[in-house]
């Protein structure tokens, strides 16, 4: 073995090929089957896609680096299930490009935070976390309420995420900016389109409490309120979740 190596280390290209070959095996064995074994991701026929407003909120969540302190992955451990809710299923993040499972809980897990608090609570908390939770060490995100949400490129955003596999229809893409506006303006004519495209259960309300204007706060709160609620699969008994 050492004799072989003694010859190998005299050949630059041989060494290069050996390194590539040896290093590739682990990834091929562990990653490739995840795309081919059907049991990897459960079936959830009720799973819906993010609305344009929720997707914009998700992009704000990414932009602000929320994932560096908040996980979105409840592990299969008793204390986590009791603290945060049913453990996370793979299907719940199948439209997440990229996933936001996180790696650190400086703050609590958010996988099932949707619906747990009111919109008013979220807005107050994001404006000044210490106003609602004196011990909090989260930064304040007050400028989100002052910043208008960019909607003109939401169609392009949906198109791009469709290209990587999320089933948005042409209708959804064409109406993306209007749907984003309508979801935060329940009394406007645009609101109807939202429920038409994304289902009757979609949250349609003025998330930041101000119906007329669409801010980044609207988008982020809309996203936080849908976390864990794109499908009910995790709440069903294990046997009922098809694989």
């Amino acid at each position: 073995m050492f004799g072989f190596h003694y010859r190998l280390e005299r050949k630059a290209i041989g060494l290069v090929l050996a390194i590539i070959g040896v290093a590739s095996i682990g990834g091929i064995v562990e990653i490739a089957p995840l795309f081919t074994i059907h049991q990897t991701v459960e079936q959830a026929p009720d799973m819906r896609v993010y609305t344009p407003l929720e997707l914009a909120g998700r992009n704000i969540y990414i932009r602000e680096g929320c994932y560096s302190c908040h996980s979105q992955m409840i592990r299969t451990l008793r204390d986590e299930v009791e603290r945060y809710g049913p453990y996370s299923l793979a299907v719940e993040s199948k439209y997440d490009h990229p996933m936001l499972w996180g790696s650190k809980r400086t703050g609590p897990d958010l996988a099932r935070v949707g619906g747990k608090y009111s919109d008013e609570w979220h807005v107050a908390h994001l404006n000044n976390p210490r106003a609602v939770m004196p011990e909090s060490i989260m930064p304040a995100y007050a400028w989100l309420s002052r910043t208008a949400l960019r909607t003109d490129d939401l169609g392009a955003q949906l198109k791009a995420i469709r290209a990587v596999g999320v089933p948005y229809t042409d209708d959804m893409i064409a109406n993306a900016p209007a749907d984003a506006y309508g979801q935060a303006a329940p009394d406007s004519p645009d609101a109807e389109g939202v429920t038409k495209h994304y289902g009757a259960a979609t949250n349609v309300r003025a998330f930041d409490g101000v119906p007329g204007s669409l801010t980044e706060m609207d988008a982020l709160v809309a996203y936080l309120q849908i976390l864990g609620r794109l499908t009910d699969a995790a709440h069903k008994p294990v046997a009922a979740v098809g694989r």
Binding site: A90, K94, H97
Partner: peptide
């Protein structure tokens, strides 16, 4: 998203992306 956008969407999602 386009050649004029900084933003992109990862080709992978969910569990495959995590791995």
């Amino acid at each position: 998203v386009s050649l004029g956008h900084a933003k992109s969407y990862s080709s992978f999602s969910g569990v495959q992306d995590a791995m």
